[in-house]
Computed example of a mutant assay.
Amino acid sequence: MPPTKRQTYHHGDLRAALIDSALELIAEQGVQAFSMAEASRRIGVAVSAPYRHFADRDELLSAVAVRAGELLVAAVTAERGGRAPEDRLVAVVRGYVRFAARHRALFEALSGSWSPDLERASQPVKEAFRSGAMDLSGGDPVAAESFGLAVAATAHGHAGLLHLGMFGAGEQAVDLAVRRAADATLALIAGRSRLGVTTG
């Protein structure tokens, strides 16, 4: 007789299994419909089991946001750009919008959460924006911060517009949103002097 789901867990695995279960549920139903009880039932453990690892629903959602942050980092890293700083920064934007399109519920969970762990998990994405902005700002940290924020807002804004249906539906909408976000980023780069950004 094969082991049941309950029998497959041992100490140290349950926390990760609950996060995986929560990720699946949020992807299917959204954050609002998510419950710890349903996450427990899905992996075949008692509804009291999560409380060994998480104080409440918010704490589990925070852990989910950290995992979502790691997935965002992977999506941004997977997007290939050229060697030029302009190409690398545009690639970050494309990866950001694609992640938002492919993982809408997780993107929303990520956007609505903050914790020190999430800050650490998402740091590589922030560094990707910052690094590209710094390269295009002549090493001026003040100008780079302003420019990097403008580019990040462009990426986030296009993701939000995609979710509102402004680009249509389906894969064509995703491709259009990604292209528009990339074009807007290139326009920002071309007009960076208006933001007080100059290259060295």
Rank of each mutant, 00 (worst) to 15 (best):
Pro2Arg: 14
Thr4Gln: 11
Thr4Cys: 08
Lys5Pro: 15
Lys5Gly: 06
Thr8Gln: 11
Tyr9Glu: 04
His11Ala: 14
Gly12Met: 06
Asp13Trp: 11
Ala16Phe: 03
Leu18Pro: 03
Ile26Ser: 06
Gln29Phe: 13
Gly30Met: 08
Val31Tyr: 07
Val31Asp: 00
Ala33Ser: 13
Phe34Arg: 06
Glu38Tyr: 08
Glu38Cys: 06
Ala39Phe: 13
Ile43Asp: 03
Ile43Val: 09
Gly44Phe: 07
Gly44Gln: 08
Gly44Glu: 13
Val47Asn: 15
Ser48Ile: 07
Tyr51Lys: 14
Arg52Asp: 09
Phe54Val: 01
Asp56Val: 04
Arg57Leu: 10
Arg57Phe: 02
Asp58Tyr: 00
Leu60Gly: 04
Leu61Asn: 07
Ser62Leu: 11
Val64Trp: 13
Arg67Met: 12
Gly69Ile: 01
Leu72Gly: 01
Leu72Asn: 04
Val73Leu: 04
Ala74Thr: 07
Ala78Lys: 11
Ala78Asn: 11
Arg80Gly: 01
Gly81Asp: 06
Ala84Arg: 03
Pro85Leu: 04
Pro85Ala: 07
Glu86Trp: 04
Ala91His: 08
Val93Gln: 02
Arg94Ser: 12
Arg94Gln: 15
Tyr96Ile: 07
Val97Glu: 11
Arg98Trp: 07
Arg98Phe: 12
Ala100His: 03
Ala105Arg: 10
Ala105Trp: 11
Leu106Gln: 12
Phe107Gly: 02
Phe107Asp: 10
Phe107Tyr: 15
Glu108Ala: 02
Ala109Asn: 09
Ser113Asp: 11
Trp114Ala: 05
Ser115Leu: 00
Asp117Cys: 08
Leu118Ile: 07
Ser122Val: 15
Pro124Val: 00
Pro124Gly: 09
Val125Ile: 14
Lys126Pro: 02
Phe129Ile: 09
Arg130His: 12
Ser131Trp: 03
Ser131Thr: 14
Leu136Pro: 00
Gly139Pro: 03
Asp140Tyr: 00
Val142Asn: 03
Val142Tyr: 03
Val142Cys: 00
Gly148Leu: 01
Leu149Phe: 02
Ala150Gln: 04
Val151Met: 00
Ala152Lys: 13
Ala152Arg: 12
Ala155Leu: 11
His156Gln: 07
Gly160Asp: 15
His163Trp: 15
Leu164Asp: 15
Leu164Thr: 10
Gly165Tyr: 12
Phe167Ile: 13
Gly168Ser: 11
Gly168Glu: 09
Glu171Trp: 02
Ala173Gly: 04
Ala177Arg: 12
Ala182Met: 12
Asp183Lys: 02
Thr185Gly: 07
Ala187Gln: 03
Leu188Trp: 03
Ile189Tyr: 03
Ala190Gln: 05
Ala190His: 08
Arg192Ser: 05
Ser193Met: 10
Arg194Val: 07
Arg194Pro: 00
Arg194Gln: 03
Arg194Phe: 06
Leu195Glu: 06
Thr198Ala: 13
